[in-house]
Write a protein that binds this DNA or RNA. Structure first.
Length: 344
DNA sequence: TGCAATAGGTCCCAGAGTAA
DNA sequence: TTACTCTGGGACCTATTGCA
């Protein structure tokens, strides 16, 4: 079951597009034109509306749906006959378009609230594979690019635990923390995860900083080495920005204002823009971070524009708990990104 | 060999802590 | 007080492993 807030924003956006005039009446009516919403979901929405705990989400989503209904680039006040909600399962849509709603089997709409995250992928898929899609065999990226630094961090953590008198033996008397980090089993990972909370013990700071620095530098080096020529870099930028095979719309909100965008296809993009440079570099930070920047010529406007973002390489479920992931962020405001256009 | 259970990977989001 | 950084975790899907 998706989070309640996701259900509220996505379904309310679709409801508003049906031109029903009043949100509460629309929720009560449960229109058949909105396909894919089960009875239990309608019940949850009605309960949330009655409780008044998500008024801001209901209001923003309703306004976004109305804006799309009226927009010249949207529905031009033509009430759709059918809106399909993706729901908790993925629709069999074009897999590179992150759509939550499909309107009249034509318009694809993604509902995105307060999120700057573009991707959340395995690091090898980004730095070695350029998001090209073929999922590389999963690896522990930290060990893959910074094995010595990972081992040093592990040594420091292991030493800290044993010095503190922690119980590091399992029921059979086996050591949960082997000498080599590559030999860690699930139980040892869980032990470390529990022992190393949000705030690292001070003696581990240097080792962790060295690991983060090494991972950032070597990830950036590997990424730079696979960028290819200008055309390949341009295709990478399209994938980073989630330009897909079909145009789609993003209806949501940034921290300060509504966000209503039309997203180009690569074909649209090439009519107007040309990539001039794409660069990546490591950045000193508390965790491993790689910055990226694209310089793009806007032929219509006759200017160059810069789009910036960064990638965090991090354990997604606690330290030593599983393989790291790469979170790709967009730092440039959405409306200033080449290929993203404010809805008119 | 097929099924069930478990572990791992990815997507998405939220919250704590800290700096401005 | 606000914005940002860093971290944790739920959910779902897929791959792997164990067992009959």
């Amino acid at each position: 079951m998706p989070p309640l807030r996701t259900e509220i924003t996505e379904i309310t956006t679709g409801l508003a597009m049906l031109g029903l005039g009043d949100l509460d009446w629309a929720l009560e009516r449960r229109p058949a034109e909105l396909v894919g919403v089960a009875g239990g979901v309608w019940d949850r929405l009605a309960a949330a509306r009655a409780a008044g705990e998500h008024d801001a989400d209901f209001r923003r989503a309703w306004e976004n749906g109305l804006a799309f209904l009226r927009a010249d680039e949207g529905l031009r006040s033509r009430v759709p006959a059918r809106i399909e909600w993706k729901g908790p399962d993925r629709l069999p849509l074009v897999n590179d378009v992150p759509a939550d709603l499909r309107i009249d089997r034509v318009y694809l709409v993604s509902c995105k609230y307060l999120s700057k995250v573009l991707h959340n992928v395995a690091p090898a898929g980004l730095f070695d594979g350029g998001l090209a899609g073929a999922s590389a065999k999963a690896v522990d990226w930290f060990g893959h690019v910074a094995g010595d630094e990972l081992q040093a961090f592990y040594d420091a953590a292991r030493r800290g635990l044993t010095d503190a008198g922690a119980d590091v033996l399992d029921a059979a008397g086996r050591d949960l923390l082997p000498a080599r980090v590559t030999d860690l089993a699930r139980s040892g990972r869980d032990l470390l995860k529990g022992a190393l909370g949000r705030s690292l013990p001070a003696p581990l700071d240097d080792a962790y900083a060295a690991l983060a620095r090494a991972v950032a530098e070597r990830s950036a080096d590997r990424w730079a080495a696979t960028l290819g020529d200008r055309a390949e870099r341009e295709r990478l930028l399209w994938r980073l920005l989630r330009l897909g095979g079909a145009p789609y719309f993003v209806l949501g909100a940034s921290a300060s204002s509504p966000m209503r965008l039309r997203i180009d296809t690569p074909w649209d993009w090439q009519q107007r823009y040309r990539l001039k440079a794409f660069e990546v570099w490591p950045e000193p930070a508390g965790q491993a971070v790689v910055r990226w920047q694209a310089s793009v010529a806007d032929r219509d406007a006759g200017v160059d524009v810069t789009t910036r973002g960064h990638v965090e390489i991090r354990w997604s479920h606690g330290r030593f708990s599983g393989n790291p992931e790469a979170k790709v962020y967009l730092d440039t405001p959405h409306a200033q990104v080449p290929g993203y256009h404010g809805l008119t």
